[in-house]
């Protein structure tokens, strides 16, 4: 019977590489939820006809 080796020999390299990816992942998640929130805000504005506050200086 042979055992399949899990390729974790270079786990240190992978872990350090993941550290470079982390800020991008965090940013993407934050922007995703921020965008969703703004979409919802926009729909609310359409519903009650009040312009969003951030557009006041436009």
């Amino acid at each position: 019977m042979t055992m399949t080796m899990i390729p974790i020999a270079h786990a240190g390299h992978w872990f350090e590489g993941a550290l470079y990816l982390a800020p991008v992942v965090i940013l993407v998640v934050v922007l995703f939820f921020q965008g969703r929130k703004e979409d919802d805000d926009e729909l609310d504005v359409v519903d009650d006809g009040t312009p969003p506050a951030r557009d006041a200086h436009a």
Binding site: H10, E16, V24
Partner: peptide, 13 residues
Amino acid sequence: AALASAAVAVLPD
């Protein structure tokens, strides 16, 4: 897309 651009970064140095 942004994730993909950094995805290479998880690979070995």
